[in-house]
């Protein structure tokens, strides 16, 4: 009987909570990608006065707890909790992805740029056809890490009332408190299943593949 209770709880976690978790992950990463790419390009290519603004953005969003950001956006915009949470995750991930992307752009070998200029490419063409394609590949391990970070941080959204996996446990637990620990464990395992294979794959396989293309880290 307890068996059935747990499986119905698990079903609830997955049907009611998991969608918000996945949605927030995708939204946060996607928005963070656009912001991060723009910030990184600004920091690498723009005048110092503008680059400083991008850097300030990074520092601010890295220096504030994501839950505080979520609360701030919630009270400032009056949007539904899910939107505010997504906005907070996206803006903050932008700060991190900017660092990842900037590091990747800077680690593209200088002689690649020289060769592009020597062919007659202008700055834009060099960035678009040579530097960015290489930087995107170099950024993959960092991105896989950021994917895990965003996935895990969607859990904060429960604190502003988003029905995600962690929050979904609360909903049914009043009926059967003894199931609280197994339910939280189950949620934890689901997170692990979501994050670990991808970071592992990107961490090992991608690094190997990259270095086989001569795109490894310290070359």
């Amino acid at each position: 009987m307890q068996e059935r209770d747990f499986s119905s709880l698990l079903a609830f976690i997955i049907t009611a909570g998991l969608p918000a978790t996945l949605l927030l992950t995708v939204a946060g990463l996607g928005m963070g990608f656009l912001i991060g790419l723009a910030l990184a390009l600004i920091r690498v290519y723009a005048e110092d006065e503008i680059a400083v603004i991008a850097q300030a953005y990074e520092n601010v969003f890295r220096g504030i707890p994501v839950l505080v950001l979520m609360l701030l956006f919630l009270v400032m915009t009056g949007w539904p909790a899910l939107f505010s949470a997504g906005l907070a995750l996206g803006l903050r991930s932008g700060a991190y992805q900017s660092q990842i992307m900037r590091g990747a752009i800077l680690s593209v070998n200088e002689n690649q740029v020289t060769a592009a200029y020597a062919l007659g490419m202008d700055r834009m063409q060099t960035a678009r056809f040579i530097v960015l394609p290489q930087a995107f590949r170099l950024a993959l391990p960092g991105w896989s890490n950021e994917y895990a970070v965003v996935t895990k941080d969607t859990a904060w959204a429960g604190a502003i009332g988003v029905l995600d996996m962690v929050k979904s446990v609360d909903y049914l637990i009043f009926e059967n408190p003894i199931l609280y620990l197994p339910a939280i464990l189950a949620v934890t395992i689901i997170y692990f299943v979501l994050t670990y294979p991808i970071t592992r794959y990107a961490g090992e396989k991608m690094t190997k593949r990259l270095s086989s293309l001569g795109l490894g880290g310290n070359y």
Partner: peptide, 20 residues
């Protein structure tokens, strides 16, 4: 300059092929 450079080829000591 870009169009002038396109008319001057360059071969490098370290090859500098586009690695991607």
């Amino acid at each position: 300059l870009n169009s002038m450079r396109s008319r001057i080829g360059m071969v490098f000591q370290q090859f500098n092929l586009f690695s991607h």
